[in-house]
Nucleic acid binder design. Structure first.
Ligand SMILES: [Mn+2]
Ligand SMILES: [Mn+2]
Ligand SMILES: [Mn+2]
Ligand SMILES: [Mn+2]
Lengths: 215, 215
DNA sequence: TATAAATGTTAGACTAGTCTAACATTTTTT
DNA sequence: AAAAAATGTTAGACTAGTCTAACATTTATA
């Protein structure tokens, strides 16, 4: 598989995550590529039996395609954790580098990464790492935006990996495992007053709350 | 620069090493690509002022092209040392992976690699690592094939990075820094009887001797 | 020095991946 | 149900990188 095909497969997998059906339009938007280009790649992936496709119908990954996607995701997430835990980079710095290293062809390399990290289950953003057969454990964290006032939660993941978001979390000392107590919820804009790690008090906008996963 | 252009530049640099002049034929042979393909890439690199080229004349890297080549070589060699010293791979395993990682675009990544390794000067095969300005220290090791009988030397580099060669050296416990004593030289085939690390006695063929650099 | 061999170049074709412009189908709105 | 909007497809062009076949130039040999 080419690097381009791998990136399409990853996009396809991501779009199939929230139950919604996959359209040419959505793939094009996610990859910032024009629809006719996507259309021709869709035909190509279909010929390779990586997706199920009929003209004007919505697109689905085949079992084969889904497995391929998950194996690339595995390399991406292992790499991110390696960059953070072994090389000491911040969780806001690792994604762009992993986006390149995920295409590396070397079992030797990734097996060693996996081994050095102690066969980890989660990446630096709390996302589960598929196993070497492409199996993905489901996790049951909920977005902070659906949580109740007065209760205490633990940060278990983030749904947005933009450096600007993660750097903001750094600035309020929030990491995976940090405690978040909701002290009040604003009716009007759904913003939350929170106490972090029992210390910092601040306000989270609705958008921030939607992107924080807690247990 | 594209990955392909980077690989051509590296090849050009390598061919310019032993003083010989660079021909389309030699580039084609080294990269296992046909001459007309090389010809068109040569025109392309020439337009980008990375090489000096006139029809039917021999090819030279410009200062700009040479610097680019050395910066890629820097990434290659830093990566090889990282794979060996940080990740524990063997010197016979690192080249192929480095061939891929050398094309990564991330100063952050390579600066961190450099830092973790303590700003090293040599790669796992004894080759000097160009500095971040593309400057390359010259080293004055000599091939074992030019050395004298009865003297003791120290292995400082290898001129061949094939896994088969390096694995052979592993099998006789030879690493960078190992002692090699020449006990006799065969007139007929220039093979050498050697004592390694004061222990193992064996015979090195002329081809092996040509590929070992010593001080 | 004339011929042959080696090397280099041009021309034209092909694939992967991208685009724009035009056309087709499906979905939504009126 | 008709018209309009949204979405999807086709056709055709372009670039990077590769190839083969044919032609040109330089170098070596007789
Ligand atoms: Mn990521
Ligand atoms: Mn990628
Ligand atoms: Mn190497
Ligand atoms: Mn390379």
């Amino acid at each position: 598989m080419t690097l381009t095909e791998e990136n399409y497969l990853k996009a396809l997998h991501r779009l199939s995550q929230n139950g919604e059906s996959i359209s040419v339009k959505r793939i094009a938007a996610l990859l910032d590529i024009k629809m006719p280009t996507v259309n021709s790649m869709v035909k190509n992936l279909s010929e390779k039996k990586l997706i199920k496709y009929e003209k004007y119908k919505s697109i689905e990954l085949t079992e084969k395609g889904r497995k391929q996607a998950l194996l690339i995701l595995r390399k991406h997430r292992l790499t991110e954790l390696f960059l953070k835990d072994v090389m000491g980079l911040g969780w806001e710095e690792v994604h762009d580098i992993a986006e390149q290293i995920e295409h590396l062809q070397s079992d030797l390399f990734f097996n060693r990464v996996d081994e050095m990290l102690g066969y980890p289950k989660f990446d630096p953003h709390g996302e589960p790492i598929p196993d070497s057969h492409g199996r993905l454990p489901q996790l049951k964290a909920t977005p902070l935006s659906l949580c109740q006032s007065g209760k205490k939660y633990q940060l278990s993941g983030v749904l947005n990996n933009d450096a600007s978001f993660l750097t903001y979390l750094n600035s309020v000392d929030l990491q995976l495992g940090s405690q978040i107590e909701i002290t009040a919820i604003q009716e009007f804009d759904k913003s939350m007053a929170v106490k972090l790690n029992g210390k910092i008090k601040t306000i989270f906008s609705a958008l921030i709350c939607q992107n924080l996963l807690v247990l």
